[in-house]
Design a binder for these strands. Structure first.
Lengths: 333, 333
DNA sequence: CTGTTAGCGCTTTCAC
DNA sequence: GTGAAAGCGCTAACAG
């Protein structure tokens, strides 16, 4: 029953050539005749032979494997990114280790260390940490940071969060809002900082006075946002617009508004961020800033692959790619 | 700069022992003194040495790696399962390849084949296909099927879908419904069939006449369900309850109901399936049958690990584990 | 307790 | 065009 796995020697014997030749046709390295090729290929086919990627990797120092580290795979925004990464890298023959860090630095460390041991060719990394210098140095693996920008991240692919914050706030202003609450993540991720900058920028541009009391920090969750909105509504009844750090929070805000009998968009207008599917199917459908997850994935794959193949070269110059975002107008503004 | 990766020989030299000894302390195989252990461990620490899992795998035929194949990683139900699998298997030293098949059989084939080439120790597989005999035979890799039950699947871990269908329908009946629509996936997955069986079973138990016209098949999406519900409402105005194949569909139904000015739960009651986060935060919060994704992940890991370690033995007996589901009563019933 | 050594399956010179 | 052989980093006898 347990017919041991077939290997290259078997293929070589079966087709009456040396294993070197088998290897050559497998890798299309030339230096074999057409007949040999056909014969070998046929045997391989018949026996459903698959190269042992471990052995190959041991020789070539390439594993055709990458790691992706995300903070929370159950968050649709991140799972969309994972899906996009797979869409572009699987056709190139890579398989991807997906590591969920649960927003914990320690978990990230464990994952990185085991990815390194597994000899991944590269890592795409959505980091929860503020500074990544250490990691970057200790393993000589190409890393592309995406979404968030930690200190010392070299190559990265991020959305134009500042523009997103600006567009969202501008939309609110143009629809008549003058007292705009920003619901902000407590964590100092670059994404958060940039969105906030965009918010401030828009206020300035339209000469709306900035009120620090209208910037409230809260945990990024539906429940926390709902609670925070409720409180803000009490403290600032004049509030007529809300820009949320993400869509889940925006939904929390929406429901707090409903609870407080404020009509949306009549009394208060609302904009979310990310563009997850929820925003289309909530009631009313929500205006949001959509991030281009497909492009985020595509670009990061592109760059990572380039770095993997240039690995010999002495130096890369770090690249920063910024992906445009898009305001999606729906019924909350 | 490109200081080549440090290997076991280096550690051996640095700590003045043979590589065999290093290997022993690394694998805690005993037969070394405490001092030796300390010394070696210290050197390993200092140089941040990591074993090369490829080389190790080449020798041991174990890669400490598993594959998980899911139909759609952006579906929260599946990403929750992935998360649960990681939660239980990462602490055991495994890393997981996550493969999104996009509900396509061909994609599954590609993934399986590349997982086999990568030498994964096992696979957890949510299959889109009706019959899996071929795969199971061609690679000698332990596979645990989960969620869906294809023909010829050996070992599997599934929710008690029939009970779920029964509980959902019973809830509707007990709350007074007599004309209950079932919105069913068009695809013949075991999950769908079992939920349907539960639905029929509950009708029988409560002596409610079964009306085949009240079973409508539709694609599993928000939009399709919304449309189907709208039409069903027209054709069967007497309808007073809906049991949906999943939560997303239930949300579609909910919105169709609102559009048709039917009050929920007053005029029509509604139950979903899966228990994704959406059901808590929609309006009104939805009654649903919750699947225990954590347990699904935990059990499948448990069984897979057991099979991996028993690999030598001539035979396994296939196991089928059924995880209980739970009715979560909220505001739509 | 410790070291020596033979491969695991593959790629890659180097000869022919 | 093709083959022989070295060796990637590691484990597991085997010998002491």
């Amino acid at each position: 029953m347990e017919d041991k796995k077939i290997s290259m020697v078997d293929i070589a014997k079966l087709s009456g050539v040396s294993i070197a030749t088998v290897s050559r046709v497998l890798n299309k390295n030339g230096r074999y005749s057409k007949e040999t090729e056909d014969r070998v290929l046929k045997v391989i086919q018949e026996h459903n032979y698959k190269v042992n990627v471990n052995a190959k990797g041991l020789r070539t120092k390439r594993t055709q494997t990458i790691g992706v580290i995300v903070p929370d795979i159950t968050n649709e925004f991140f799972s969309q990114i994972v899906r996009a990464i797979e869409r572009y890298i699987v056709p190139k023959g890579y398989t991807v280790f997906v590591c969920d860090s649960n927003e914990k630095e320690e978990a990230e460390d464990i994952h990185i260390s085991s990815l390194a041991a597994k000899g991944v060719d590269g890592i795409i990394y959505i980091s929860t940490r503020g500074d990544v210098k250490k990691i970057y140095e200790s393993y000589k693996i190409p890393v592309v940071y995406i979404d968030r920008r930690p200190q010392n991240a070299g190559t990265l692919v991020i959305s134009d969060n500042e523009m997103g914050g600006f567009l969202a706030t501008q939309e609110l202003i143009e629809k008549g809002c003058r007292h705009i609450l920003m619901l902000k993540d407590t964590k100092p991720f670059s994404t958060v900082v940039h969105r906030y900058k965009g918010y401030v920028g828009a206020l300035e541009k339209y000469k709306i006075p900035f009120d620090p009391e209208l910037v409230v920090e809260t945990e990024v969750s539906y429940a926390a946002a709902r609670k925070a909105t409720k409180e803000a509504l009490l403290a600032h009844p004049e509030m007529d617009g809300i820009f949320c750090n993400n869509d889940m929070m925006a939904l929390g805000a929406l429901h707090a508004l409903r609870e407080a009998k404020r009509k949306v968009p009549r009394d208060v207008k609302l904009v979310g961020f990310d563009g997850i599917s929820l925003t289309e199917i909530c009631d009313p459908p929500m205006t949001t800033v959509r991030q281009n997850t497909d492009e985020l994935g595509k670009k990061s794959v592109e760059i990572l692959l380039r770095r993997i193949h240039k690995k010999q070269d002495a130096k890369f110059h770090d690249e920063v790619v910024v992906i445009p975002v898009e305001l999606v107008r729906r019924k909350t503004t």
